[in-house]
Computed example of a mutant assay.
Amino acid sequence: MKPALADASAATPTLLVGVDFGGEHFDSELHELGLLALTAGMVPVARISCKRKAPDPALFVGSGKADEIRLLAQQCGAREVLFDQSLSPSQQRNLERRLEIPVNDRTFLILEIFAQRARSHEGKLQVELARLQYLSTRLVRRWSHLERQSGGIGMRGGPGETQIELDRRMISEQIMRTRERLTKVKRQRSTQRRQRERSEVFAVSLIGYTNAGKSTLFNALVKARAYAADQLFATLDTTTRQMYLSEINASVSISDTVGFIRDLPHGLVDAFQATLQEAISADLLLHVVDAANEEFPLQIAQVQQVLKEIGADQIPQVLVFNKVDAIPMDRQPQAMLDSFELEGVQVPRVFVSARSHEGLSALRELLAQYAQVPSGAGHAGPDGFGVVEESSTIQDQSFR
């Protein structure tokens, strides 16, 4: 258990819970969950974790641990409990009855943040679709108003079933309408994309783990004013600008996309296809990495996983190790431009600081080289970077 540094009176005091099922990437300190909670306007007041072989079907953590969580929540004044994993509707409902305070999971938290941050019409539609899909699985007697409808002649089941069916039908209709509206937005974006393709503009997309500094780098490259902040999911809406490269006397289009995260809900991946389409149709991906974060190999792996899910894993990449100014002296890179082995492919890597603009000239030169490579060159890229036949691991040996 670790107290939060923030003032608990400013937002909802929240107890963080994590369960280790023996996975490779379990966050025992619940650091990322705490950052997500702060981003959503909550204040973590305590943290607790435990180990299990498998989730308990009824309470996810078992009755004994649930009672321990309830006692800790009372002691620290928590008014909400937040799990680092996804809960089933029945587990969530049973936990709320047992703990007597609201219980939510990681999926709900990410949806909440997305709902707060979406600014464009497209972004709001995407969040609304994902929220409705999540809500549609949690209709079984979850709210007290469902008990007001009594069973009777001509009605199947017990209290609440008619109201549940009405709610389910209403949400299904909302999902259908939202999908139709989102389809129209996708067509508009597709038209804009085809216009860029007809103009033969080289398309670059910024991707990366959330809070890696993509929007700050985007602003530095194109002198734009896209929103950037030191927080998770600061940017949700895709922004595209033209960037002039004097090295080749031509412009390229560059897009800033939503950040990826561990265990990104599949509903969000589906709902954000229009936004992520910018990455799918790009000629080059600038994979921005927080070089100051010691867990960057895990974050790179998470981004690669999402790229596979959306069908963008075969697009050439350049790794941009950002925040070089925040790297400790004993971990400073030996060279500002080298290569990095990524899933069996040697890709160029450049170290930069989007904040101080260090390394940006080298990045621009690298972009110019890629923009001159004839179409169909595939992964060859500039300077002979190509496929490594035998290895398929992520390696890094450029740090001292």
Rank of each mutant, 00 (worst) to 15 (best):
P316H: 01
G22T: 01
A73S: 11
T235A: 02
L217W: 02
F296G: 10
R196Q: 08
E32T: 12
V350T: 14
E29D: 11
I280S: 08
R169Q: 15
R349Y: 07
R179A: 04
A250H: 14
I261G: 00
D67P: 01
D27P: 13
Y370S: 10
L59W: 00
T107G: 00
N219Y: 04
Q369Y: 14
A11Y: 11
L232V: 09
T162N: 02
A228W: 07
Q163C: 07
E390L: 09
G22M: 02
R241M: 10
Q163G: 10
V201A: 12
P13G: 11
G62D: 06
V289S: 03
A291I: 04
H31R: 10
R52H: 13
G123I: 00
E32H: 11
D330Q: 09
L146G: 03
F218V: 01
V17I: 14
N211H: 01
R47S: 14
D256Q: 10
S353Q: 08
L15P: 13
Q332D: 12
V19R: 07
T107W: 00
Q346S: 14
A10R: 15
F83N: 08
V127S: 13
A228V: 05
E24M: 09
C50E: 10
V127N: 05
L360V: 02
K186S: 14
I164E: 11
Q126V: 09
I394W: 02
K323V: 04
A115Y: 02
V269Q: 06
E180A: 13
G259F: 00
T238C: 08
I110W: 10
V288G: 00
A326N: 11
P55N: 07
N249Y: 07
A380N: 13
L95H: 14
R177F: 14
H379F: 10
A66H: 00
E165C: 06
M1I: 06
Q304R: 11
A203L: 12
R52M: 15
H357P: 00
A229N: 04
P316D: 03
V320C: 07
A274D: 08
D325C: 06
I153G: 09
L33G: 07
L286K: 05
G41S: 02
G267E: 15
V318H: 02
D383F: 14
